[in-house]
Amino acid sequence: MPSLDTKALIDIHDGDTPAIRMPVRMLSIDTPEVTAGSQQGAERVDEKFAQLAEWIRQRPGDVPVSRRFADYLLPKIETGKAGTLQFTQGTLAADFAKANAAQRLTRPDGSKRALFVRTADAPFDTNGRLLAYVAPNYSKAERETLTREQRSTFNLDMVREGWAAPFVIVPSIPGELDLPLFLAAADAAVAAGRGIWGEPATMPAYEYRSVERLFAIAKSLIVDGKPAAEPFGWRERYCVDMRTRVLVGPEDYFDIDPIYRLFIWPADVRDAVSRLNLTPSPRLVGVS
């Protein structure tokens, strides 16, 4: 973490109680990116993705992507508005998150509830963010009057309102009582076309980030004439269909309904296959 003279270290009230500020990456969800920074930045992404689509069409051998994935991706990036759509959705998702937190952290009498934070077994990601589920900290008396759905985490709220795509990654899988609730909320949001699901050209944020990396690699190869150290570094995770336990390769996740995608880092695949009793797809083992 950053330390002194930054926003991370807020103050030291006494010698053993520093107050710190740090980012939390909410587990099992992925909201649209606002990394473009502005509408103008989003329009530059529009241009980059449209250029990538042109390269895929005109120079398919020079872009390190399978034909199947290209056919899936092209309708989304040929719109010329992929960056703008992502930025707009990300802004709306952030607006909802702020309003939702303010509403749910406020008691009927106007006083504020504390936060409940449940961290992952491995508490930090590679960017130093705390990995967690976050919710209002209801009292025992309050919890006895609320259903599991009513005392939901902010993570689940984002999925329920359609402002986050499910993004469950091994080993941080929701518990046996929470996962069905999570999947049902996602299913209802998609069926109703809420949030990001009202737009057919929506790219889940993990997909958007992959396409950004793919553009950078294609540009290096085609425009700069520089060989890429990892031409397939744009794709990161394997994927499992939660309903069938079938494991697919990094470019085949789109064969699985977005609600039921369970992602696995390459380093965790061998253990996950055994522990979760997974079956590799025919395509993954070279039979098609």
Results as ranks from 00 to 15, higher is better:
1 M>W: 14
5 D>Y: 13
14 D>E: 12
18 P>S: 00
18 P>M: 01
32 P>E: 05
32 P>S: 07
46 D>R: 06
46 D>V: 02
47 E>W: 11
52 L>D: 07
53 A>D: 10
55 W>G: 09
57 R>S: 14
59 R>Q: 15
60 P>Y: 07
67 R>G: 15
69 F>M: 05
72 Y>N: 02
72 Y>V: 04
74 L>G: 08
78 E>N: 11
90 G>A: 07
93 A>H: 08
97 A>V: 10
100 N>P: 08
103 Q>L: 14
103 Q>I: 12
107 R>P: 06
109 D>N: 14
110 G>C: 07
111 S>H: 08
114 A>G: 04
114 A>V: 01
115 L>A: 00
118 R>G: 09
133 Y>W: 15
135 A>E: 06
135 A>Q: 07
136 P>E: 00
141 A>L: 06
141 A>M: 03
144 E>P: 02
147 T>W: 09
149 E>K: 13
152 S>Y: 10
159 V>Y: 07
160 R>F: 02
166 P>C: 00
169 I>L: 11
169 I>T: 14
172 S>N: 15
180 P>I: 04
180 P>T: 02
183 L>G: 03
187 D>H: 11
188 A>E: 12
202 T>A: 12
204 P>V: 02
205 A>S: 12
212 E>Q: 15
215 F>E: 09
216 A>H: 02
217 I>H: 07
218 A>M: 05
220 S>R: 15
221 L>I: 14
223 V>C: 09
223 V>G: 10
225 G>Q: 10
227 P>Q: 13
232 F>E: 15
232 F>P: 11
238 Y>V: 05
240 V>G: 03
247 L>E: 00
258 P>G: 01
265 W>C: 10
267 A>Y: 09
268 D>P: 00
270 R>Q: 15
276 L>V: 01
283 R>D: 12
